[in-house]
Design a protein around this nucleic acid. Structure first.
Lengths: 228, 228
DNA sequence: GAGGCAATTTAGGTCTGCCTAATTACTTAG
DNA sequence: CTAAGTAATTAGGCAGACCTAAATTGCCTC
């Protein structure tokens, strides 16, 4: 019986690796099947199936022990970072060069990230002047996969009200993103937290703009640093 | 029994439609299965299979009678032209904005043409100033699918030697394209045919450049118009 | 008008990525 | 320490897009 080699360069595999990378967090913790199933919108059975394939490949893309969750192998992490790089370069490109509205950038980048060539990647990187951050304030991994670690924390986790620097804004929810943008809340901006009680925050980006009230769930989309 | 509806918005379908469009020529003649199989690098059986599906869809993309070849339906033609538009806009974009070498433009455009959004299409079109021709000299179909018809003829079909205007150059063979380019043979250029005998042509684009000798098979990649 | 041949279609598989249902392994509460 | 309850895995299927091999069919020639 020949060991049949499978093709692991598919969009689907890309998405699994991205999801594991994202859910693993900075500590690269093991990720559970359900968490993945949930994130990818796929049944748990499909997850198990794919993970077994990814782990069994000649150069395994994940480390996987049955019922104990997965984490990326070095090769898998490399791939995940490459795609993340594509994604963020594309977002920057769509925003800067093609003049997309900020909240429209994510979806197109998500689709194209799987299909651009190395040449395309290199050309837009050059055109943009080798940017380090995308328009949401997220760090763009270098070609070699290096990426500086996050020094920010979610706005939802502050101890007390006051003034902060917006570090980045999550790009997943375009409606929220548009709203934040309309209120001047964008990376690099000074943000005043006027009031944060249980589930509600009231924010203002500058004297100009109107205050914005947000529930805790949405506030966590904004990451901040202390000023200074 | 429910009529199961199939998904016809796939890359594969795109490629069938493109192939039928290209092989049908300006007269939109019926195209044979073998010609398609050949062009798409797929077995004749697969062609039959796909054509049946395309013809049976609720809005048929092709007109197909068993053993008589296919042609595009109006809907199919619309789709084919849309993709051709994507392709040529992308080529122009990669060339003009991203500075690709001319011979590298085709492959990336071919991959991306299936995945760009309407917004992307509109943005690059705007950025390029609504171009009418791609860098190979091919006409870019308008948004509504309108496209002026070709007034040129293949260089391989000239009656006698002399001077011509290069109309366009085929983008399929990147090696040839690079060679033509290196000899200054590009759309809009005056081209002198120094000698054309049986299977061989000798061409020169300007007093400057060295003459280029090409076999008939490659010469047909160049389309020309009379000078006037 | 029958044979022969090439083109085409039908039949029956494969592989990928997904799904549902059924089963098994943990974990934890009593 | 057992009974739930939950998480994960196995088993068995399906659709899409391909393939090979085995009919067919259309047509051309003798």
């Amino acid at each position: 019986m020949t060991t049949r080699r499978v093709n692991l360069n598919t969009e689907s595999v890309d998405n699994y690796l991205k999801a594991i990378f994202a859910l693993g967090g900075p500590g690269e913790e093991r990720v559970s099947s359900t968490a993945l199933a949930d994130r990818l919108g796929v049944s748990p059975a499909s997850i198990t199936n794919m993970l077994q394939k990814l782990a069994a490949s000649p150069v395994p893309l994940v480390e996987y022990e049955s019922r104990r969750g997965v984490r990326l192998s070095p090769a898998g992490k490399r791939r995940a970072l490459e795609i993340l790089r594509h994604h963020r370069l594309l977002e920057t490109f769509l925003y800067e060069v093609l003049g997309y509205p900020i909240e429209e950038v994510h979806d197109d980048a998500e689709r194209l990230e799987h299909f651009i060539s190395e040449r395309f990647e290199e050309r837009i990187d050059a055109k943009l002047g080798r940017p380090k951050f995308d328009p949401h304030g997220h760090c763009i991994p270098a070609l070699n996969g290096r990426m500086s670690k996050q020094t920010s924390r979610p706005l939802s986790e502050i101890e007390e009200d006051g003034e902060f620097l917006v570090d980045s804004v999550s790009d997943g929810d375009s409606v929220l993103l548009k709203r934040l943008n309309a209120h001047g809340i964008a990376p690099g901006v000074r943000l005043r937290v006027l009031r944060s009680s249980q589930g509600e925050f009231v924010l203002r980006a500058s004297r100009r703009s109107k205050p914005l009230q947000l529930p805790l769930s949405e506030v966590s989309a904004v990451r901040i640093r202390s000023i200074g």
